[in-house]
């Protein structure tokens, strides 16, 4: 890992050369009280790469995504997304803490799908998807609605656009939530255990949507999941995360068949044969 290149960019949000990673985390640390969630994490994710994060619960997997979504500010370290510093900006050649305004600009590159959907219960499926483009991207209602209908069609929810979340099944809610995240046209999509809150028979329909996204778009994706078969299918790289650190990373065919560390072996054994 090289030193942060503080001298080369003018403003925090200015684009870097193509070869740069889409996501870069350097020595990122986050603790809640005495509990260290991220312990000096280094991570590079290439543009278009699909990275699956596995590991025991409480290991900090979700915190990685929450840091990238700016829901959790790291205690130290540098995070870059799409060539811009996430929590910092350059001022007079110095790396300083980013303003709220700066956060809003760089956050546009990232979108997230949550474990518990977090749909807005007082809005229809359509409005859930189109409110972001209308309020945060400045689209007209007509344009936002048109695009939202397309996206809802893509996730198989075309006939449910006027339903409220309470009228939808868990799988349907999660598909609406995926459409809502896509509507923001992010460069990086974060999926946080998106099937963990679903009834088993509804998992498939949600994974199908993500599978299709993974195979048909060049969006950079980071996924935390316990669905190992699915991980194996879509991941370019699998990270085994434990105790706030990446303890092993490899392409799926490698890590699932020949895990190198005992910790990974034990974990995979536990999740694959329960």
């Amino acid at each position: 890992m090289s030193e942060p290149d503080v001298e080369e960019t003018g403003t925090g949000a200015s684009p870097r050369p193509e070869a740069e990673p889409m996501v870069r985390m350097e020595q990122v640390t986050k603790a809640f009280g005495d509990f260290v969630c991220l312990d000096g994490l280094d991570l590079d994710v290439k543009t278009g790469e699909k990275v699956v994060i596995i590991g025991p619960s409480g290991s900090g997997k979700t915190t990685i995504l929450r840091v990238l979504m700016t829901l959790e500010r790291p205690d130290s370290g540098v995070v870059e997304v799409a060539g811009g510093y996430l929590y910092h900006q350059m001022r007079d050649g110095q790396l300083v803490k980013g303003s709220e305004k700066h956060l809003r600009v760089v956050r546009r590159n990232v979108s997230m799908v949550f474990q518990h959907f977090n749909l807005f219960p007082h809005m229809t499926a359509l409005r859930n998807v189109s409110i972001g483009p209308m309020k945060a991207l400045g689209r007209s209602k007509e344009k936002a609605d048109e695009r939202s209908r397309e996206l809802l069609g893509m996730v198989g929810m075309a006939d449910k656009v006027n339903q409220y979340p309470a009228q939808l099944s868990g799988g349907q809610k999660q598909r609406v939530a995926i459409a809502r995240a896509l509507a923001m046209e992010p460069k990086v999509m974060l999926f946080d255990e998106i099937t963990s809150a679903l009834d088993p028979e509804l998992v498939g329909e949600v994974l199908n949507v993500v599978r299709q996204l993974a195979h048909t778009t060049d969006m950079t994706m980071l996924l935390v999941t316990h669905e190992m078969g699915f991980a194996r299918e879509i991941a370019d790289r699998v990270l085994m995360f434990a105790g706030g650190r990446i303890i092993e990373q490899a392409p799926p065919e490698e890590i699932f068949t020949e895990p190198k560390t005992e910790r990974t072996k034990a974990f995979l054994k536990a999740v694959l044969h329960h």
């Binding site: 979504m69 829901l71 979108s111 977090n118 809502r180």
Partner: peptide, 19 residues
């Protein structure tokens, strides 16, 4: 989660309160 979802789609504080 509602606040977090609002932040994830980049709504401003005012819009988050109001909408």
């Amino acid at each position: 989660g509602q606040w977090e979802a609002a932040q994830a789609i980049n709504l401003t504080a005012t819009t988050t309160w109001r909408s």
